[in-house]
């Protein structure tokens, strides 16, 4: 005899919520603690730092990604309402749009990461920091006794300069390629987590957030594809599952809404 699991569609009378909703909120509570811990660590590291970089991240790109994720939350909730209205084709379209937004977000984020990996910083023996792009391959730079680096323009942190750099490398202006002997260099590296505490926290927080986006895309992809078969037998059960996935997706988007100003603006 087959036994049916209770409260997958209707709410439990004592909690007022169906099983999956209780489960997702318990999970999201643990996620709040995870990201809350990271945000707390960021605040304390920043308060304790003698030097904290500003305008290192590309605000126009971050802003574009913010719009993409906000749009994805809207399409997500539209997919759920379409399912509640039993409009299956509309549900597939809205959920498909959410998937596209998630993929676009990851694409832009990977461009940002690539840009950081090609950006270099040099600490001279006198403590001065020079940042810019190598005018030689990283392999050459490792072997050579001299580093050839095109320093960042004076206004490289400005919104206008960052906007130009989205569409290609902006004109360097009066800047000239510097040839720095390795004997004058204390330390040099590209902008990876080891470069500074700021970049370490940036990659940790955005990397973890990116993993959440990938996880969300897997779940949403399932409900767009094979998981959508449930609609034929129990549409309300599918609507509940999509609602739970939507709650996770909204949470992940909400984390970005806090990450963007924290890391990009202030």
């Amino acid at each position: 005899m087959e036994m049916e699991i209770p409260y997958t569609v209707t709410a439990r009378p004592d909690t007022g919520a169906y099983n999956a909703k209780i489960g997702i909120w318990l999970f999201l509570a643990s996620e709040v603690m995870l990201f809350g811990g990271l945000f707390s660590a960021y605040i304390f590291l920043r308060l304790g730092a003698t030097h904290w970089p500003h305008h290192l991240l590309n605000v126009p790109m971050g802003l574009f990604n913010t719009f993409v994720l906000i749009t994805s939350s809207i399409t997500m909730v539209m997919a759920w309402t379409a399912l509640k209205m039993r409009q299956f084709q509309s549900y597939r379209r809205w959920l498909g749009a959410t998937l596209v937004c998630g993929v676009v977000f990851l694409g832009v984020k990977s461009m940002e990461y690539k840009d950081k990996f090609h950006h270099y910083g040099v600490i001279l023996n006198n403590g001065q920091e020079i940042t810019g792009h190598l005018e030689m391959s990283p392999a050459e730079a490792r072997k050579s006794q001299t580093l050839r680096i095109l320093p960042d323009a004076e206004d490289s942190g400005s919104f206008g300069h960052q906007l130009q750099s989205v569409f290609g490398r902006p004109a360097a202006g009066e800047e000239k390629v510097l040839e720095i002997p390795k004997s004058d260099i204390q330390w040099w590296s590209n902008f990876t987590p080891r470069y500074s505490t700021y970049l370490a926290t940036y990659f940790t927080m955005t990397g973890l957030h990116g993993l959440h986006i990938i996880g969300g895309l897997v779940v949403l992809g399932f409900f767009w594809g094979p998981g959508a078969k449930l609609y034929r037998t129990n549409p309300e059960h599918l609507a509940n599952r999509v609602e739970v996935a939507g709650l996770f997706w909204h949470f992940v988007d909400l984390v970005w809404i806090f990450l963007f100003p924290t890391l990009y603006l202030f």
């Binding site: 909120w25 909730v77 909400l254 809404i257």
Partner: peptide, 26 residues
């Protein structure tokens, strides 16, 4: 909390974000 309520909370926070961004830019 339902997705509807969470979405409304999300919309409220997004409004705050853009007000803050506007202030930052100005």
């Amino acid at each position: 909390m339902s997705l509807r309520q969470f979405h409304l909370l999300f919309v409220t926070i997004v409004t705050g974000l853009f007000l803050g961004l506007g202030g930052w830019a100005l």
